[in-house]
Simulated assay, not measured.
Amino acid sequence: MMWQDLVFMLGSGLSIVFLAPTLRDASARVPLGTSLPSMGIGFVYATTFFTLGMNFSAMGSLAAGTMWSLIALIRSPNGIGISLRLARMESPVLFARDLTRWIGSYRASSPGVNQYVTFDGGREQQYRQTAENAAD
């Protein structure tokens, strides 16, 4: 075992110890903007450490990522309802449909720029409308 593996595992263990009170506190509210990126980082670190052969560090990062997952699920400001709505089966289906439509748009013969509408009036049109609205 490398000493670095032990250091990273202890660091992840400490983060779990420090996060436990947040999970136990019923009044704690952690925004999803904080918990979801931290969860993702924990899982990415776990995968990276595992591929480097640092199994203890990988287990510690996996545990920290799991702790952040629980915090996101239970302690988000909108409660467990919004967290469960994020994980429902409809979301991956919608994502797959959007991805298919997006890939199909690149395969189409017409360029994607045609889907946007341009406004040729410029600032003069905007000022004219503002002046007309002010006169009314």
Rank of each mutant, 00 (worst) to 15 (best):
Y127T: 04
S38E: 14
G60H: 09
F50M: 12
G65K: 04
V117R: 11
A131N: 06
M39D: 09
S38K: 08
S76H: 03
L70H: 06
S91G: 01
R97A: 10
T100N: 12
A72T: 04
F119K: 03
V113H: 14
A28E: 04
F119I: 03
F119V: 02
M1S: 08
V44H: 06
G79S: 04
P111K: 10
R75H: 14
G13Q: 03
Q115V: 06
M67E: 13
G42N: 12
Q4T: 07
F43C: 03
T100C: 05
A131H: 08
E132C: 01
A28L: 00
A135S: 14
A87V: 04
F56I: 01
F50T: 06
P92D: 08
W102D: 12
P37C: 05
G53H: 08
T47K: 15
A135K: 13
V30A: 13
R85Q: 14
S61P: 01
S35Y: 07
F8W: 12
S69H: 10
A26M: 09
N55Y: 11
S110Y: 08
Y106N: 08
M89Y: 13
G122A: 09
G40P: 00
S83P: 02
R75D: 14
R88M: 10
D5I: 00
F95G: 08
G13Y: 00
D25V: 02
Y106V: 00
R88H: 13
M39H: 08
T51Q: 14
I80G: 07
Q125F: 07
V7G: 04
L14Q: 15
A108V: 00
S12T: 05
W3S: 07
E132M: 08
V17K: 10
G104S: 09
F49Y: 15
S61N: 09
S57K: 08
L32F: 04
N114T: 05
D5M: 03
L86S: 09
W3A: 05
Y45H: 04
V17Y: 07
P77A: 01
R85E: 15
P37E: 12
T130F: 06
D120T: 01
Q4Y: 10
V7Y: 10
Q4G: 08
L62W: 11
S105Y: 03
A87D: 11
G11A: 09
A134Y: 15
S12Y: 07
G11Q: 13
R85H: 10
A134W: 13
L84N: 00
Q129S: 06
L94V: 04
V44T: 06
D120Q: 02
L73C: 02
I16M: 15
I16Q: 15
Q125C: 03
R107C: 15
F18E: 15
A63H: 06
A63S: 07
A135T: 10
A87C: 07
N114I: 03
Y45M: 08
M9C: 02
S57W: 15
D120L: 02
L94G: 10
F119H: 08
G53D: 14
G81W: 01
S110P: 01
A108Q: 11
Y127C: 03
A63W: 06
I80W: 12
M39C: 14
F18A: 13
V44E: 12
I80P: 03
R24L: 10
P111Y: 04
P21H: 10
M54C: 11
V113G: 13
S61G: 00
S76F: 00
L52K: 04
R107W: 14
